[in-house]
């Protein structure tokens, strides 16, 4: 067991050092930073604009409610948190997983292709390789998410000269939910990566799921809106708790569902990787 942990740790640390050198990861990270740089700049400008005119603030809230499909009575929570942080939360929850999928889609695929694993599998257990790489991908994802949280604090301090406890709590909670949101997708990437040995397939499958799943639910809800409890099926799929989180209605299922999906994906991925051939 000690040997196994030691190998996971070795693979994890090695991968953590190597991942930023992957072109796909570094380019995606640059775009991720650019997106958030422009977003914070825009939010800072918007904040000043909205503070000056109530009508515009109303318009902005209308826009948010339209995007999220909220009821006007649910504005209150937004008012309490503040436009800046609400916008940060929405953007985080709606966009981060796409970047994370690109950054973590190549956990094993390309090195199955170029046969690098032939140097490893005679020295190290396959489960250890798989888990070490998955942990590294999760750490990279967490680091990217944490970076946006830190940047949000920075922007808030710039705006108000200081930051409140509520804001700190909101950002930490948002980062936690974003990570939980991304978790099943990272694990799905690892599973498909182990199965297909292709970066493109891994990215395509995870992206498709992330893009299409919400659309599928929208169609289902529209088509069978009279069927009782049809809205509840969202609860049982990963990546469908944006509303609950933003409205502070999150419940245990919002935590359990992504964890269960992640565990299933990891288990399947690990089984595939242990059994697969390296031709």
């Amino acid at each position: 067991m000690d040997k196994s942990f030691s190998q996971i740790r070795t693979v994890f640390l090695n991968e953590l050092a190597f991942t930023p050198r992957k072109i796909a990861v570094s380019v995606t990270f640059v775009f991720f930073c650019l997106l958030w740089g422009f977003t914070f700049k825009g939010l800072i400008e918007l904040d000043g604009y909205l503070k000056g005119a109530n009508s515009e603030k109303g318009l902005f809230l209308d826009f948010l409610t339209w995007i999220l499909g909220l009821e006007p009575r649910e504005f209150e929570r937004f008012e309490k948190t503040g436009i800046f942080f609400v916008s940060f939360g929405i953007l985080s929850l709606l966009t981060t997983h796409f970047f994370v999928i690109i950054m973590t889609s190549d956990q094993t695929a390309s090195e199955i292709g170029n046969r690098y694993f032939r140097y490893l599998v005679t020295r190290c257990g396959r489960t250890e390789i798989f888990m070490g790489r998955l942990l590294s991908a999760l750490t990279i994802s967490l680091a990217a998410i944490a970076l946006t949280g830190i940047a949000a604090f920075g922007a808030d301090c710039y705006l108000n000269g200081t930051t409140s406890f509520d804001s700190v709590l909101f950002v930490i909670k948002t980062c936690f939910w974003v990570f939980l949101f991304c978790l099943p997708f990272v694990c799905l990437c690892s599973m498909i990566s182990a199965w297909s040995g292709s970066v493109a397939t891994s990215m395509l499958c995870s992206m498709s799921l992330a893009f299409l799943l919400p659309k599928v639910f929208n169609v289902i809800e529209l088509k069978w809106k009279k069927v009782e409890g049809i809205k509840d099926i969202r609860e049982y799929f990963p990546g469908n708790f944006t509303h609950s989180v933003l409205l502070d209605n999150a419940n245990a299922s919002n935590v359990i569902v992504p964890l269960v999906y992640s565990a299933v994906f990891v288990w399947i991925g690990c089984s595939i990787f242990r059994r697969r051939e390296f031709p």
Partner: peptide, 10 residues
């Protein structure tokens, strides 16, 4: 241990 054919180091 093995010297594999056509495998590349990182």
């Amino acid at each position: 241990s093995i010297l594999p054919q056509d495998a590349s180091l990182r």
